[in-house]
Amino acid sequence: MTEVDVVVAALAVDGGRPVVLVGGGRRLPRVPLGPKTPGAAAAGLAERVLPGAPPRRVRQLGAYGTGRALDLVHVVLVPGGAPTADGHAWSAPDRVAGEDRAAAAAARDWLAEAIGSETLALDLLPDAFTAADLRRVYEAVWSTTLDVANFRRWVRAQEGVIAATGEKRTGVGRPAALYTRAPDAPRRLRLPLARPEPGPAPSGHRA
């Protein structure tokens, strides 16, 4: 009989880079499938190892393994800095141990591929964020630099997806307008964001 585990590749953006949650032995969190559906088991596991940070998005990535062991890997997205429990900690995806490293890399690559057309970046941010916060998520996931003025215009085009709160973040520099996910926002962006081709970083002032 094949043993089936549900494995969670929880992704966040922290320190300007994507990170993944690991536990003992630098492995991804896992539980036996049991009577629950794979999605429900993944969500329950994520809530246990990430207390206080309910998963914003849970999606099955794929099945890994052969023979008597099969891992159903689910991607879970949470805001950066989410607290961890049960000895788990955030790590670079390429530092995950053993066979789980391939699953962590696949989760990171899926995020980089899908984030330009789906509202995944909002799942990686707190409820209120600035345009600069949102831009830095894309820059971290894509390992690139985006033009500030073009990105602001793109944000303003996301009607029905991103909504201004009417408040501003104050502190160092100019006050920055705060945004949030629009009520009943779709899962796909109103206007996709194209991933820049590799090349020199754009010049100009950065906010």
Rank of each mutant, 00 (worst) to 15 (best):
V7H: 12
T84K: 08
L21W: 11
V20P: 01
L193M: 06
P200V: 05
W90N: 01
I115P: 01
G166A: 14
L45M: 11
L45H: 12
E167R: 14
G25R: 03
G173M: 03
P32Q: 00
V4R: 11
Q158N: 08
H74M: 00
Q158S: 07
D94C: 04
P202T: 09
V13N: 02
D5Y: 07
S143Q: 14
A63I: 00
R169L: 15
V75A: 09
E159L: 12
A185Y: 00
R206I: 12
R108N: 01
W154S: 01
V22R: 05
V19E: 02
G171S: 13
P35D: 10
P79H: 06
V13M: 04
Q158G: 09
R26W: 14
V22T: 12
G87W: 01
Y64M: 00
G25H: 01
L70Q: 11
A112H: 07
V7K: 11
A46V: 05
R59P: 00
A63P: 14
D14Q: 15
L21M: 12
L11D: 02
E3H: 14
K168Y: 15
A69S: 14
M1I: 01
R190Q: 08
R156M: 13
Q60R: 15
L146G: 09
G98L: 11
P93N: 09
V148Y: 12
R136I: 00
V4Y: 00
R26E: 13
G52N: 05
P83A: 15
A182E: 02
H74W: 06
A103Q: 11
K168S: 13
L120S: 05
D184M: 13
A41P: 07
V58T: 12
E118P: 07
Y179L: 04
R68K: 11
D147H: 05
T165L: 12
R152L: 15
V7W: 06
L146I: 04
G16W: 03
G80H: 04
V148M: 06
A104K: 09
L111A: 07
G16N: 07
L124I: 03
V22L: 07
L146H: 09
P198L: 13
A103Y: 03
